[in-house]
Simulated scan of single mutants.
Amino acid sequence: MAALAEFEEQRGRLWGIAYRMTGSVADADDAVQDAWLRWSRLPDGAADDPRAYLTTVISRICYDRLTSARVRREQYIGPWLPEPLVTQEGPEERAALDESVSVALLTVLERLSPTERTALILHDVFAVPFAEIAEVVGRTPDSVRQAASRARRRVRAEAPRRPVERGEHRKVVEAFSAAVMAGDFEGLLKVLDPDVIWRSDGGGKVIAARLPVLGAEKVARFAHHLLRDFHPDRMWMAMREVNGAPGVLVADDATGFAAVFAFTVDQGRIREVNAVLNPDKLSHLDLQALR
């Protein structure tokens, strides 16, 4: 059996690839487990380069999942957003946000074909050569290079511009949260970009907007409406790290309701709000540990 230690050395990287490829914590966990099962069946020394071998294995698993998931996501009720990664906030001195795992970027990646998404993530984020990616997707290296180029152009056109520094991002999100909690409509308008877009992912499980909400005034009214039933005696709102950037977690201890808000900030205003409310996508969160 192949050595467990060699697999554990690669586990974090494998999970990072799987999450970026699928946008799902559950799928990433399952993909890593599948990769381990395949690795464990190998005789000792069968893989000359464990890193390259396991990268190919996890990528093939996730590529197959992407292909089969397309139909399910096309039938999904309302906008489909990735399952958020929520932790206690990171070091304040860290100036750069993790753009490759941002909710906004992962949402754009959903609009790519499985081949384009795989090529872009593996090559641009994890520096996998095109020849190795070609083995994953069953294409030629030139075809994969072209797919990555198409994906790159689309991301440049649709993804937010390079993220602002963490301190500026946090300041804007704090102003948004304060305005929402105070019912300060004018304060909300000041912090929202005129062309802001709000996406709500309820998956048909909870009440959420099934179409994106566009424009500062509509978004401000929608945010106020969404949190009108906030009860501070049993509910709480906190700034938390959401996919590598300051975001907001709202939870109700009595009902188990939770909502995670990720933000894109540009020039001192919020350009995007991505709200995940589908309980299936938040079941991996330990709300007590995050409180």
Rank of each mutant, 00 (worst) to 15 (best):
G167I: 05
E116I: 11
R161Y: 12
V180P: 04
A175C: 10
A157M: 13
A147C: 08
R152H: 12
E168I: 05
K171D: 13
P114G: 07
R152M: 08
V128Q: 06
D124F: 11
I121Y: 01
F176M: 07
V136G: 08
L112T: 04
E174F: 09
T118P: 05
P114W: 02
L105P: 02
P141R: 08
E132I: 01
S149A: 15
A147Q: 10
A179W: 00
V155G: 06
L109T: 01
H123W: 04
I133H: 01
R166V: 05
A157R: 13
Q146A: 14
P160Y: 02
G167R: 08
V172K: 06
R166A: 00
P129Q: 08
T115E: 06
R153P: 03
L109S: 04
A179H: 02
E135P: 03
A119D: 11
R170Q: 09
V108T: 04
R156S: 08
R139W: 04
V136N: 05
A148S: 14
L105W: 02
R117E: 10
V172S: 04
H169G: 00
L106F: 02
E165P: 06
A147D: 11
A175F: 10
P160R: 00
S102H: 12
A119K: 05
T107A: 12
D124T: 14
R150I: 11
H169R: 02
E186S: 15
V125H: 15
A182Y: 07
R154C: 00
S102C: 09
D124E: 11
V155A: 08
V155K: 14
E135A: 09
V136T: 10
P129M: 09
T140A: 07
K171G: 13
V173T: 08
R139D: 11
G138E: 13
A127G: 03
R139G: 03
V180F: 03
R156A: 08
A127I: 15
A134M: 07
R154P: 03
R111I: 01
T140M: 07
P129E: 06
G167S: 08
A131W: 14
I121A: 03
L120S: 03
A131V: 12
P160C: 10
P114N: 09
E132P: 00
S177A: 13
A148W: 15
P163T: 07
G183M: 07
R152T: 11
V136F: 10
G138C: 13
E186P: 07
P160Q: 09
